[in-house]
Design a protein around this nucleic acid. Structure first.
Length: 484
RNA sequence: GGGUCGGUAGCUCAACGGUAGAGCAGUGGCCUUUUAAGCCAUUGGUUCAGGGUUCGAAUCCCUGCCGGCCUACCA
C-alpha cells in the first residue's frame, strides 16, 4: 500500500479490504443465517442446562477488547447488543488471523454456544464467524457517542448506531403509530389514502409548497391538511374513516414545527365533538397502556403529566377571562383589549382583527400553562370555519382543542355540514383569492354529508409528549435541514 | 426575517494574543473471561471559509457558510 498514513482511517480500512480480496475473500459477497436476535439468543441461556445452547447471530461490531490470543467483542443488532468471546484455540489460527483484521463498525455473523462470563454476562463462545460488510469509515467515539446536533440529524444512521435513546424513540414512535391504527381498526374505522398533490390546498390556513406536474403542465400544491378529501368520503358513505400521513406547510421551523409533519385525521359519522372527546381520551390512554406502560409521563423539564382518569374541560372564554382578570373582556373594544395586552406584556400587532387579539392572549398566556390534559371548548367561530356553530351562542363553535404539555395536541369539531354556511365561511376566509375556495368540496357537501365528529392530531407532537422529547426533531428521523 | 451562542484530529473535548493538546478510534508490540479492559510506543490538524488588526491570531474585528437556542411569521 502506498498510503502509510495510519491516521487516515478510510485508507487503512480500504487497505484491509483490498488485502482480503487479494486473498480470495470478499466481505460484500457474503451472507449469514441470523437464527436469533441478540435478545432472543440471550433468552435461550439456561444456567441449569447441561449443554450450552448454540445460537447464530449477526450485527455490527461496537466494541473490541483484544487480549492477544482471545478477544471480547460486542455487536449491535435490531434488538440490542450481545457479547461474543473469540478465542484463537476455539476458531483456529488462520480464522483468528482473519478476525484480527475486523474493525469496529464491521458487520459480522457468528455462531457458537452460550456461556456466562466471570462477571455474569451471557456471551457467545464463537465457533465460526464471517465478515459480512466492511466498514470503511469509523464509528463515533464509543463512550460519548454522537453528540453534535447537526451530525445527529444529518447522519441519523450514526446516531441510531451510537445512541440507544434515539433507537428507543424510533421504536416507540413506530409502536405508537401501530397502536393508533389498531385502536381505530378495532372501532371499525377504515384507513384510506387521499391526494398529496392538490390543485387547491384546503382544510387549514397554512402556506403550501408548490410543485409542477409535467404531464398535465400545471402547478399543484402539496397538501396542508387531510380534511376536505376525508369529508368527501363522509359524503360517499364511508362513515368511519381515517388517514395517517404527511402534511406539508411552507412556514417557519422551530422546536415544535417541521415543514413536513405527520398527522392523523379521523371522521366518524353520527358523532360530534363530544364523541371525539371520549375517543381521543380512550385512544391516548390506550397508547399509555400498550406502548408506555404508564399514564404518568415526565416531560423534558421534569414535570409529571398525568394522562389517567377524566380530563379537565373548560371554555375558551373562561380561560381568557381568567388570564386577563377581566370578566368584561369580550365586550371591550379592540383598543381596550390592546391596552390590556400591553399591561400583560403581550406584544400584539395593532393591525390584526379583534378576535386575533384574543387569540394572542390565548396563545401567549393560556396555552403554555395547560400542562395537564385539558379540553378547551367553545372557541371563537372565526378560528375554525369548518366547524358547526353552537346553538346557544352563535359566536362560538362546537369544538375542543386538547392541550397537553403546553401544546395543542388535537383539535376536534362537530363538522359543519350545512353547504350554505360552509360556502359563506370559505368565501369570507378566501377574501380576494376566490381561487382558494375548493368548489368541488362545496359541491360534495351539497350532496349531503352526515353529521359527524372529526379529529386531527399531530403525531410528532404526540410522540414528543409520550417520549418526553424536547424537540420535534428528536421524533422525526430525518428532519428538514438546509442542504449541505 | 431578528437576537444570541457555537463550529479545533474520524468522534468527545482542552488551549482564549506567544511552539495547537488530551481521551477514544487508528498503527506497532505485550496480554486466552474483558465490561469505557489494561500496559508500552506511535501516526494524525488549511483550528468552517475569506478578509482585517498585530512583531505574532484557533484566540481580537468584519463578511460569508452551517448549526443550536430564543423570537417573529404561522386557522
Amino acid at each position: 500500500m502506498e498510503n502509510t498514513n495510519t491516521s487516515d482511517l478510510f485508507a487503512v480500512r480500504s487497505a484491509k479490504l483490498q488485502a482480503m480480496r487479494q486473498a480470495g475473500f470478499d466481505p460484500f459477497s457474503q451472507n449469514w443465517e441470523q437464527k436469533q436476535t441478540s435478545l432472543e439468543a440471550k433468552a435461550l441461556f439456561d444456567d441449569t442446562a447441561e449443554e450450552e445452547p448454540g445460537v447464530s447471530v449477526a450485527g455490527r461490531i461496537l466494541v473490541f477488547r483484544d487480549m492477544g490470543k482471545a478477544c471480547f467483542i460486542k455487536i449491535l443488532d435490531r434488538a440490542g447488543e450481545i457479547q461474543a468471546y473469540v478465542k484463537r484455540d476455539e476458531i483456529g489460527e488462520s480464522a483468528y488471523e482473519a478476525f484480527k483484521q475486523y474493525d469496529i463498525g464491521d458487520i459480522i455473523g457468528f455462531e457458537g454456544p452460550l456461556f456466562k462470563t466471570k462477571t455474569g454476562e451471557i456471551t457467545v463462545r464463537v465457533k465460526t464467524m464471517c465478515l459480512l460488510s466492511k466498514a470503511l469509515r469509523p464509528l463515533p467515539e464509543k463512550w460519548h457517542g454522537l453528540v453534535d446536533n447537526e451530525a445527529i440529524y444529518r447522519q441519523r444512521y450514526l446516531d441510531l448506531i451510537c445512541n440507544a435513546e434515539s433507537r428507543k424513540r424510533m421504536f416507540l414512535r413506530s409502536q405508537i403509530i401501530r397502536e393508533i391504527r389498531q385502536f381505530l381498526w378495532n372501532r371499525d374505522f377504515i384507513e384510506v389514502e387521499t391526494p398529496m398533490l392538490q390543485s387547491v390546498a384546503g382544510g387549514a390556513a397554512a402556506r403550501p409548497f408548490t410543485t409542477h406536474m409535467n404531464a398535465l403542465d400545471c402547478d399543484f400544491y402539496l397538501r396542508i391538511s387531510l380534511e376536505l378529501y376525508l369529508k368527501r368520503l363522509l359524503v360517499a358513505g364511508v362513515d368511519r374513516v381515517f388517514e395517517l400521513g404527511r402534511n406539508f406547510r411552507n412556514e417557519g421551523l422551530s422546536r415544535r414545527h417541521n415543514p413536513e409533519f405527520t398527522m392523523i385525521e379521523l371522521y366518524q359519522a353520527y358523532s360530534d365533538f363530544r364523541g371525539m372527546m371520549r375517543l381521543i381520551r380512550d385512544l391516548i390512554q390506550h397508547l399509555c397502556k400498550t406502548v408506555i406502560g404508564a399514564t404518568q409521563i415526565k416531560n423534558y423539564e421534569g414535570v409529571t403529566i398525568d394522562l389517567g382518569g377524566e380530563w379537565r374541560e373548560v371554555r375558551y372564554k373562561d380561560l381568557i377571562i381568567e388570564a386577563t382578570q377581566d370578566p368584561q373582556w369580550f365586550s371591550r373594544t379592540k383598543a381596550e383589549k390592546l391596552q390590556k395586552c400591553a399591561e400583560l406584556g403581550i406584544e400584539v400587532n395593532p393591525d390584526i382583527e379583534d378576535f386575533e387579539v384574543t387569540k394572542n392572549v390565548y396563545e401567549k398566556c393560556v396555552e403554555p400553562n395547560l400542562i395537564q390534559p385539558t379540553f378547551v371548548t367553545h372557541i371563537q367561530k372565526e378560528l375554525c370555519p369548518l366547524a358547526k356553530i353552537n346553538k346557544a351562542d352563535n359566536s362560538v363553535i362546537d369544538v375542543f382543542e386538547l392541550c397537553i404539555n403546553g401544546q395543542e395536541i388535537a383539535p376536534a369539531y362537530s363538522e359543519q355540514n350545512d353547504p350554505f354556511i360552509q360556502r359563506t365561511m370559505f368565501e369570507a376566509q378566501a377574501g380576494e383569492d376566490q381561487q382558494a375556495v375548493d368548489q368541488d368540496f362545496l359541491k360534495a357537501l351539497e350532496h349531503g354529508m352526515p353529521p359527524a365528529g372529526g379529529l386531527g392530531m399531530g403525531i410528532d407532537r404526540l410522540v414528543i409528549l409520550l417520549t418526553g422529547a424536547s424537540n420535534i426533531r428528536d421524533t422525526i428521523l430525518f428532519p428538514s435541514l438546509r442542504p449541505e
